[in-house]
């Protein structure tokens, strides 16, 4: 267990809106380990980003962490070895600020908007170093140049004075990555960092992620809706649906023996080169969070739906073999005993 950097336990993040409460994150648990990549997958609105933002307490009003724990095993500074519950820290407090950018860094989805348009590249890359490391200005500058070089920005010294509007999308995302890695964080959270990029650039950025992760021995939590991205970088995978974990698995099992019908549906909705079978999109859409289906949230769209079983009562997350788990009635003891277990 010494390799565990972050333990999310029964996290609940709700949006307290005038029309009611939206349970964006509804009891999510997972671990992120040093040197490993955890991919969080799901359709839009399934709570992936809300989970990521909760970890750094960046959830905007009217969102609020209302339950659960986010345990960070600290590795830096005087507190190394201690465990701190991020969910219990005040969002604007000093302790949270010391962790942000230092122990946990984040890369955002839109490289166009996640960097300031009116500050130079150098300024934004040096900022976290200035905030967290007591280094002389000259060394900070050198470190930033070195970081830009490591994320493969050509002519890094010159680009320190560039503005982000002078760079391409891929370059901007490299700058974001350099800024995030500037203090060598123990955990990097990447919120769909390649979604806004074209496929070629996406592949380059993913390679860069993998490479830098190995170099720095970081834990990475990577949020994406793209199963191709999952295949290329994930070690472990959490599949989310409507704020809950639908399936938890290693990457091989995800593709070779998916347990949850939702996961299977996701996989069969992705085109595979070389096959000529018809694509099977998941029928229906993600239900409105105000109108959450009873029982299993996925049952109205599920091919294996068992009337009278799936549409009533909460569905437990059932442990399968080798650390896998699925939130599905098919794997509960009573169904497995009485009838037709699928796997």
């Amino acid at each position: 267990m010494s390799d565990v950097i972050l333990q999310v336990q029964d996290l609940q993040t709700h949006y307290l809106l005038r029309d009611g409460v939206t349970r964006a994150v509804d009891g999510v648990s997972f671990d992120v380990r040093r040197g490993r990549t955890l991919c969080v997958v799901g359709e839009s609105g399934c709570g992936k980003s809300a989970t990521a933002h909760s970890i750094l307490q960046l959830v905007d009003e009217p969102g609020k962490i209302v339950g659960g724990r986010i345990l960070l095993h600290r590795t830096h500074g005087e507190q190394a070895g201690q465990v701190v519950d991020l969910a219990a820290l005040p969002a604007r407090g000093k302790q949270m600020r010391e962790i942000r950018g230092r122990e946990i860094a984040m890369v955002f989805q839109e490289p166009m908007t996640s960097l300031s348009p009116v500050h130079t590249v150098g300024d934004q890359v040096m900022e976290a170093i200035r905030l967290h490391l007591p280094l002389p200005e000259k060394q900070i500058h050198e470190r930033a140049v070195d970081l830009l070089d490591r994320v493969r920005i050509p002519n890094p010294r010159r680009h320190m004075d560039s503005y982000t509007f002078q760079l391409s999308g891929g370059m901007r995302q490299r700058v974001s990555l350099a800024a995030a890695l500037s203090c060598e964080p123990a955990l990097l959270i990447a919120d769909e960092p390649t979604t806004a990029l074209d496929v070629t650039t996406q592949a380059q950025i993913l390679d860069l992620f993998a490479e830098l992760q190995q170099e720095l021995d970081m834990a990475v939590m990577f949020i994406t809706h793209d199963l191709g991205v999952v295949a290329s970088i994930a070690d472990e995978v959490v599949v989310m649906y409507l704020g809950q974990v639908a399936e938890q698995t290693d990457v091989d099992s995800l593709f070779h023996r998916p347990a949850h019908p939702y996961t299977r549906a996701l996989l069969s909705s992705v085109p595979k080169p070389g096959t000529r079978t018809r694509l099977a999109p998941i029928r229906g859409g993600v239900p409105s969070p105000y109108d959450r289906p009873s029982g299993c949230a996925f049952h109205p769209r599920c091919d294996a739906m068992m009337p009278g079983v799936c549409d009533r009562g909460p569905v437990p997350l059932v442990d399968l073999d080798a650390g896998r788990a699925a939130r599905c009635m098919l794997y509960t003891e009573e169904v497995a005993r009485d009838g037709e277990p699928v796997r």
Binding site: L58, M106, E127
Partner: peptide, 9 residues
């Protein structure tokens, strides 16, 4: 970019 700046500490 505001959230990003916040995430830097």
């Amino acid at each position: 970019y505001v959230a990003a700046a916040r995430a830097r500490g």
